[in-house]
Design a protein around this nucleic acid. Structure first.
Lengths: 227, 227
DNA sequence: CCAATAAATGAATGACGTTCATTTATCTCC
DNA sequence: GGAGATAAATGAACGTCATTCATTTATTGG
């Protein structure tokens, strides 16, 4: 795609003469409608037809503003990224800031796991909200005394954990029910039972907290300055 | 689904009289064909029609052995689980065993990321290979001196990290290219550049190693016995 | 040989994402 | 105040899927 890379927010540069028909649709409206649809009907309910209907428009009209359903997903993702709370990196100690950020990040994407496969592989180019988050997080790491070369890998590791944990948060309570194979997995079955008197209680939150603590401790040891 | 839960491997119990037509198809054959199709054409190429064609059969025939495409994915997932190397838990020190297991696990699912959303939420009931892995890993944790209650959360945390890292391993090298927004993200851009003279080298492997070390150290501290 | 069983077939269905020729509305320029 | 250019919206179509179902085919026990 060797295009002149139009400025963001403008699909194509204004040309010579006449103006078009009044736009009922734009990317922001599409994004908002998609988010509402997702929250009401889930990702299965997010179809181009349903999205168009919720906007009072024919499905084909969407394609004047968006090149594909995948682009809709990218727009939604960017919007969600802007809701991740990374404010702690400018006010709190590093450990606290990471914790706050990680909980917020996981909380948001736990309800949007279908996006994770998109995000994890999506270049940040032209994703301003995502970049803003990375900038703030990077600053926080620098301020905490991390050597520059360790910062990106540390963030990548934390993000991997957060994404995986977001999936986890959606697991059913009985995910570890070994059923009729319990006899052949005695240690595992016993370990699951030790978690509580209730059968089948899945420790998603406890696990997230434990792993996050471990990562914070382990990565924190990479700092060369105390503050 | 209040059924008598038929024994696995048998779709329905043998009944009274005559035997059916000679079966050209079975679940193992379908699983093998699906895996080959995936390795050749990727997950986009895995359609019920393509799967049937590769087996020399009409698409509808598949539904005599499998209730849906989702079940095909579950069969593939179970097969992949059997290839994860957890042997270290009976021979190596805990840290080494975890490392070996995690690398193997990530390596396999990095090429099967579309399955991760399925696995992470799929009950282990009637998933013998998955259960066998959990049993071996649990035993390794017990042998290493973990209190029983800490084991499942620790495994869940490690798995979350492994799944997230599997997505990461597929990120393009230029995922962190901040493009024309580089000026507004100076610290982040500089941190990315510090990773090497080459533009856009993504530190997926380095990040995995760093985060895994952190998790091993942090979780390892939960052991109450030295061995 | 008959009846029962289950596998395989092929046609059909209903979503879905996407395309395209056409129409509609709006603005600039003369 | 037309004329023409521009882009948005429409509605009909397409191709691809997963899935269903009535029917046929093959096999075997009695």
């Amino acid at each position: 795609m060797p295009e002149p890379t139009p400025a963001p927010g403008e699909t194509k540069a204004r040309r010579r003469a006449g103006r078009p028909m009044a736009a009922v649709l734009d990317q922001d409206g599409i994004t908002a409608a998609a988010l509402e649809l997702i929250s009401k009907k889930g990702y299965d309910g997010l179809t181009m037809a349903a999205l168009a209907r919720s906007l009072g428009v024919a499905p084909s009209a969407l394609y004047n503003h968006v090149s594909s359903k995948d682009e809709v997903l990218k727009l939604v993702e960017e919007d969600l990224m802007s809701k991740v709370d990374f404010g702690g990196f400018s006010t709190l100690p590093w450990e606290e800031a990471v914790r706050q950020w990680a909980y917020s990040y996981r909380g948001i994407f736990a309800r949007h796991t279908p996006l994770i496969s998109v995000i994890a592989v999506l270049p940040v180019t032209d994703a301003p909200q995502t970049l803003a988050m990375y900038e703030a997080v990077t600053e926080g790491f620098l301020r905490a005394g991390f050597p520059e070369k360790q910062i990106i890998p540390s963030i990548v590791a934390l993000e991997a954990y957060i994404f995986g944990a977001a999936f986890d948060a959606n697991a059913p309570a009985d995910i570890f029910d070994s059923g009729r194979l319990a006899d052949s997995t005695p240690h595992f079955t016993s370990a699951v039972r030790s978690l509580g008197p209730e059968r089948n209680n899945y420790p998603s939150d406890l696990a997230f907290s434990m792993g996050l603590d471990a990562l914070i401790t382990g990565l924190g040891a990479l700092r060369t300055q105390p503050n």
